[in-house]
């Protein structure tokens, strides 16, 4: 009787696990089925590196969006990575543990704010500020980078805190015993020992920034052109899919799926890289 119950539960759990993995596979399969033929027919270079996107004339070059996505992500990293890592170092090394136990979950809560809310704040506060201070339309590459930079903070802080906390106390004591100050210890020992975990946090943050859509649509301005300054309006790859899929048909629709393949591959690469870094940290501890 008990044995039968065990087996049933085991099978149910297995079915649940496979349905999750299966769903993931099906989505990947679907995107590739819809987009791959377009990708092959148009050709790698004519799709990725042509700079006119004009579905009405049958021109599907995503280069402006590709550049926009790269710049927006880079801008977000320039803000988010140094800030996030600094916060993580501060929380672990310079604040009592009891304070960190309150602050860290609070920061992680930031990840739960819907991206549309970030976008809303961007539209209402940030864009007008940029327009009146630096000129330009306000809805711009700069605004998108800034909003994304803030949005990826929880990811970077949370994973960096874990990496820094995992540095053995014996390293810190060894460094202090050799006459190092706290900051010297952090700079020369702790950051070095936590390096791969910190890099993983930055890569995962980058993945979030590349994939974010709603907030970017709201603040980036969405003009399809290669940006010449941070104040120009831009449209990212994700924004392009979201904006046009409602009315796209035929080859246009296939082109959007092909864009999805590009994003899919980029994020797969980033996540794999982050995974490799995390594993490196674990095995590095033994050696």
């Amino acid at each position: 009787m008990i044995r039968i119950g065990e087996k049933t539960v085991q099978r149910l759990l297995m079915a649940a696990a496979f349905s999750a993995i299966g769903g993931l596979l099906l989505i990947a399969l679907f995107i590739f089925k819809e987009g791959l033929s377009f990708f092959i027919e148009t050709g790698f270079r004519r799709f990725l590196f042509a700079d006119v996107w004009d579905p009405q004339s049958g021109l599907y070059g995503i280069f402006p969006m590709l550049v926009a996505s790269l710049w927006v992500t880079l801008g977000a990293m320039l803000l988010g990575a140094p800030l996030g890592i600094s916060v993580a170092v501060f929380l672990v090394e310079f604040v009592p543990r009891s304070v960190m136990r309150v602050v860290k979950p609070t920061i992680e809560l930031l990840a739960g704010i819907p991206s549309v809310v970030y976008g809303f704040i961007g539209v209402m506060v940030l864009a007008p500020f940029i327009r009146s201070t630096f000129g330009g339309p306000g809805l711009s590459l700069l605004a998108a980078s800034f909003i994304l930079g803030v949005m990826i903070l929880p990811t970077i802080i949370s994973i960096s805190v874990d990496a820094i906390t995992a540095v053995p106390a014996s390293y810190r004591e060894g460094s202090f015993a050799l006459g190092a100050t706290r900051w010297q210890t952090v700079r020369m020992v702790v950051l070095k020992a936590a390096r791969s975990g910190i890099i993983a946090s930055v890569i995962l943050g980058m993945g979030r920034a590349v994939g974010e859509t709603m907030a970017v649509i709201m603040v980036a301005g969405n003009a399809v052109k290669i940006p010449h300054s941070a104040l120009d309006s831009v449209r990212t790859l994700t924004a392009n899919i979201a904006l046009e899929m409602g009315y796209a048909t035929g080859r246009h629709r296939e082109a959007l799926f092909a864009t999805g393949i590009v994003l899919f591959v980029v994020i797969m690469i980033l996540n794999t890289a982050a995974g490799v870094m995390v594993r490196k940290r674990v095995s590095g501890k033994k050696g």
Binding site: P168, S170, Y171, E173, A193
Partner: peptide, 12 residues
Amino acid sequence: GMVFAMPVPLPM
């Protein structure tokens, strides 16, 4: 100077 019970070379 101090030498600890468990040898703890810094990771370098």
